[in-house]
Design a protein around this nucleic acid. Sequence first.
DNA 1: GTCAACAATATCGTTAGCCATCTTTTTGTT
DNA 2: AACAAAAAGATGGCTAACGATATTGTTGAC
Lengths: 242, 242
Amino acid sequence: MANDIVDNFVASGNSARMDDIAKALPKSGPPAAEIADWVRSQIRANRFVPGQRLVEVDIIRRTGGSRFKVREAFQRLAAEGLLEIEEFKGAFVREASLDEVAQLYRARAALEGICAGDFARQASDADKEKLRIIAEKMETCVESGSPEQFGRLNSEWHAMLMHVTGNHVIADIVSRLNTPVHHLLFESFYRGDRMTEATKDHRAILDAILEGDAPAAEQAMRRHVENGLQFLTSLDKALFGT
Amino acid sequence: MANDIVDNFVASGNSARMDDIAKALPKSGPPAAEIADWVRSQIRANRFVPGQRLVEVDIIRRTGGSRFKVREAFQRLAAEGLLEIEEFKGAFVREASLDEVAQLYRARAALEGICAGDFARQASDADKEKLRIIAEKMETCVESGSPEQFGRLNSEWHAMLMHVTGNHVIADIVSRLNTPVHHLLFESFYRGDRMTEATKDHRAILDAILEGDAPAAEQAMRRHVENGLQFLTSLDKALFGT
DNA sequence: GTCAACAATATCGTTAGCCATCTTTTTGTT
DNA sequence: AACAAAAAGATGGCTAACGATATTGTTGAC
C-alpha cells in the first residue's frame, strides 16, 4: 500500500509523454481515500499504535499528499472510530478499551450469526462446497503452522459467508467493527492453540450449514465469535494485566 | 442546535467588516461536528431529500462554517453512509435501497435483541420500573393520538434499554444504523395502526423482561424490529410501488 | 422547429500563506 | 536547586486565490 502511493507519486513526476502527464497530472497527489487506506493499513499492521500522535506533516512526507487531503483522510478515519481528533493537539490513534472490544465482538457475533443462518437457508450446494474447501485449506495451515496464511483464509471464509447471501451491508458493518481491534486479531493466531480451536468452531458451523439447520448454524457462529473474544481477553490479561 | 447556527450566521451576515468580525469574535465558527449534526438533522427532518445535491456554498451560508469545515463535515457524513461524494459534482444525499434498509433493520434487530436480553438479565428493579413507565406513557399517546410524542418516547425507550446495561457502543452502532432511514421512521407512526402494534410488541418485551426471561426478551425484541421493517416495506410499496 | 456545437457561468478540488494556539525550553527569581 | 514565567518553536486552523470540471444557455445550421 505504501509502495503504491510512493510509486504513484514518483510516476507522475517522472512520466515522459505529454499525453500520459496530461492524464496523470490532474491528480497531483494520491486521493484522500488512498491516504486513509494507507493510515488504516499502518494501524492494522500495528505500525501506528494506540495513543500515538499522528503528525500531519509526517503523514504528508510519507504519502506525498497535500495537507488538505491528509486532514480529510483524518476526518474520515475519525468518523470510522479509528482516530480521535482534539483541538490543537491533532489526531491520535484511538485506544479501544476492553469493554468496548467486548461490545464490538458481541455485535459481530450477532451479525455474523444472522449471516450464518442465511447461508444455511439460502446458499447453493456449490457455495457450501466452496466454504468447505476454504475450511479444508485452513486445516492444512494448522498442520503446517502458517498463521498469516490462516488469517487470510479466515478473513476470506467469514467474508464469503456473508457476501454469498447478499448481506453486503451487514458485511460492511462487520468489517468496520473489526478494524479497531485488527492488530490484536492479527496477533491472536500466533498464540496458544487458537487456530485449532477456531478450526473446531468452523467445523461445527459447517456441519450445521450442510445439514441445513439454520438456528444451529447461527448459534455455532455466535459461539465461535464469542470464543474469539474470550481468547482475546485472556491474551490481553497475559500481555498487560496483572 | 439549528437556531444557534442561524443566529450566528445572521450576526456575521449583518456585520459591516470582515476584519471587525475577526477581531470581535475570537471564537471562530461552529466546529465540523456541529455542521455534520446540522446536516444530519436536516436529512432526518426530510428537508434534504435523497438524491438532492448539497452545494458547499449553500451550507456555508446557512451554517456560518468555513468551507473547510463544511467539506470536513461532508467527509464525515460520507463515511457514515449518509452522503455520497462524486468528483467535481459534489455531495448528494444517499438513497438507501429497500434491500439496504432491510439489512439495516435485521442488524438492528439482532443488536437490540442482545441488549434486551442483557436488560432482562442485569437490570435493577428500578430500571425495569422506569421502562414500564415510559411504555405506559406511550400507551396514553396512542389514546390521545399524538404520534410525534410517541416517536420521542419510543426513541427514549429503545435508547434506555441499551444504555442501562452499559451497551453504549452497541447503542451507538444502532443509532448510526437508524440515521439513513429516519425520515421514513418519522412518517411511520402517522400511518395505519403502527402505534398500537408497536405498543403490543413493547408489552411483550416488557413482560419477558419482568419475568427475567432473557431469551424470550431477545426474541420479542427481534420480532418487534422485524415488524417495524415489515411495516416500512408495506409503507414504501403504498407510497412508491405499484 | 430541432439538434448540435460552442461559450459562459457556477461549482468543485487544490494549494499556498497567514494567524491562532499549544508545548517546550530557557531564564530568572526565590 | 526548584519553581514559575515568558519567549520561541512547532503544530493545527482558516481564508483567499487559482485551476479543473460539469452544467447550462445561446447561437447557428440543417
